[in-house]
Amino acid sequence: MIEVSNLVKKYGDFIAVQGISFKVEKGEILGLLGPNGAGKSTTMKILSAFMPATSGTARVAGFDVFEEPFEVKKRVGYLPENPPLYIEMRVREYLEYVADLKHLEKSRKKERVDYVIDRCGLGDNQKRIIATMSKGFKQRVGIAQALVHDPEVVILDEPTVGLDPVQIVEIRNLIKGLAGNHTVILSTHILPEVVMTCGKVVLINHGKVMVDDTVDTLTRGDTLEQAYLKIVTGESLAHTQH
């Protein structure tokens, strides 16, 4: 469903992503891990056809993100780090607008908007103006907009940021429920979250893939936290020796 090979992204002289490759099968949930500045958001931006890579290829839902960005965009739901909300609109109105932007068929619009409002726990707030809502609610509206057009692939950049513990559990369950029908990539700093929701983990550091494995294998001996620290700090120690 998602195939990334030798992806490179340079911002001027700075190389954010240096030749990463990984695969995600249909229905899987992939956790994209790594320290701040590792290249997670950049990778997600490329996969959602938001910006082109410097070199390398990425295929999402059977289409190349560079050759056929339109086909990719129709099939991807993307939540950036900052939820892209028109804060002066009302929740329902906004989600209907996103559905139109993504070319969701008219006949399914009401059903899908109702569904994501329900699943993201926005039922009582659907008529509220987004600007008046708390950070947690805004984040939920952000997740809802990524799901409203029933995309094959869902890309979520830190979806549980700003949520309280109860909401985190709800959103986590929501994401788990996507497995099977949707292919999901999510990035997060909360490691237990990965263990609970993801089947696979890709850990990147300094723009390179350090680990590409299932959660089960990674957590066989150590906890995921230990495994993560070993890889990230070990790598950066080796880095400073030069």
Binding site: Y78, P80, P84, L85, V98, H103
Partner: peptide, 13 residues
């Protein structure tokens, strides 16, 4: 400033 540019640029328009 609202970040909605990301929504537009990842929509098939």
């Amino acid at each position: 400033s609202q970040g909605t540019f990301a929504l537009l640029m990842t929509s098939p328009i």
